[in-house]
Nucleic acid binder design. Structure first.
Ligand SMILES: [Mn+2]
Ligand SMILES: [Mn+2]
Ligand SMILES: [Mn+2]
Ligand SMILES: [Mn+2]
Lengths: 235, 235
DNA sequence: AATAAAATTTAGGTATGACTAAATTTTAGA
DNA sequence: TCTAAAATTTAGTCATACCTAAATTTTATT
């Protein structure tokens, strides 16, 4: 119910990270998945915080023991090993929660995100274990995003973006990487949800449009959509 | 994900109360249920915070618009109508969550409290509605505590403390008002849980001990226990 | 009524995590 | 290579919610 005096903290504990820090870690993870470092501005935008606030926080994270990020002025940040663990812990919470909310409370996949965004920071490890067990240790969340394992490793994703398929190829949707609720609802109306089967019918080399067929429905999808849908190629 | 600048708050909103404030409201509610006002020290103890911190917070709550508490120096605090609503909102969240965690994740009644204590502050009204609906709008939590209604009224409790029963009277347990996990587990081992049927066998006028029979098990209970168990008299 | 003890408030700080405005550094264009 | 724009950091504040030590007020007890 109450707070802990930071001055009386026993150091060598698995210290609980603040909600802010947890959000920073998660966001840095997402921005550095491609291998590049995360810029101050990109973080500021994603976290909806000013750039100076990011600089301040980043300095703190870099000088904490153990350091959670690697930081060089003007060069952005990357996660340390410790930092990656912290990020994956939050991401595991988030994705398990999304899956659980959809399965047990009938949330739709475009509604869950917000709720999970707040719950992810306050559930116990016990809660995490209970929902994981109750769902039979799912591999992916409702969007198809991979759930970090209990020992905080991120499974490798074998799937490829729909944009790389060509006419004649088929696939099963594994993941839809979209945050926008409008877009999510649109894709759902087209049947483009995880585990849907897709046939690629046509490809337009100029705009990279793909014509795809999902459950008897045919749609023409632009490049900015086909790069967000990931599939496991079946043919 | 980020914070709101309090200086740019639009006033006349159903402003979201901070977690600290929510905990103060809940605790003040509990301490004033008997009709008396809550003292600074009692609040400090329950909230695990220093007395000066309580004074400071109380002043803020009293001068906020709308005021959440009524406060007179050295005289303790009581809740305003607004304050009571705020308290009941948190209590409803807490008790619905306890019921939900026990029903769907197999928490035991002595484990749920802590988890609910943190979740109560972050679930949405939507989440509240979903779990209430999923459970068929339960009247009581796993301890038997009454759950405030959706329109934030506290139902009146018809039950009486076990301590007021005498040999020959029977009752059904409605509520066990104990916070201590050890005690809760002990009572459970005696079968003293909500909806258990109790027969009062003996009464010792000197120490107010009651000998009771629950499911073929007979126990002698001290006054400090019998005042914490509430029953609906059936005979 | 006087005084000691208990309760409460005042005074002065701290940590966290935001913000704006100004300065600096990096980057990219001519 | 110089320079302007963009990105980033520094400097200085602020709100929230705690804290300890000291002062004050209330309350009991003679
Ligand atoms: Mn975890
Ligand atoms: Mn979050
Ligand atoms: Mn709480
Ligand atoms: Mn509510």
């Amino acid at each position: 119910m109450a707070a802990v005096n930071p001055r009386t903290w026993k150091q060598p504990m698995k210290q609980k990270l603040t909600i802010s820090i947890q959000d920073y870690m998660k966001t840095i993870y997402e921005l550095t998945e491609n291998g590049e470092s995360a810029s101050t501005n990109a973080l500021a935008q994603k976290l909806k915080v000013s750039a100076p606030s990011v600089t301040g926080m980043i300095k703190k994270l870099a000088s904490s023991k153990p350091a959670l990020v690697e930081y060089q002025k003007h060069q952005g940040v990357t996660l340390t090993k410790e930092g990656r663990k912290a990020a994956l812990e939050v991401i595991r919470h988030h994705r398990l929660l999304e899956a659980w909310l959809v399965q047990t409370l009938g949330y739709s996949w475009d509604e869950v995100h917000e709720e999970a965004e707040r719950l992810e920071h306050v559930i116990s490890e016990d809660f995490e274990r209970r929902i994981a067990t109750a769902m039979g240790h799912p591999l992916r969340d409702p969007h198809g995003e991979l759930i970090p394992t209990e020992d905080l490793k991120m499974p490798v994703d074998e799937s490829t973006p729909l944009s790389s398929l060509r006419p004649g190829q088929n696939g099963i949707v594994t993941c839809v990487k979209a945050a926008d609720m409008e877009l999510l609802r649109h894709l759902e109306s087209l049947g483009l949800v995880p585990s849907a089967e897709i046939e690629v019918k046509e490809y337009s080399p100029f705009d990279h449009n793909l014509t795809v067929k999902v459950e008897k429905k045919t749609s023409v999808l632009g490049f900015n959509i086909t790069t967000k849908i990931f599939v496991e190629i079946t043919k």
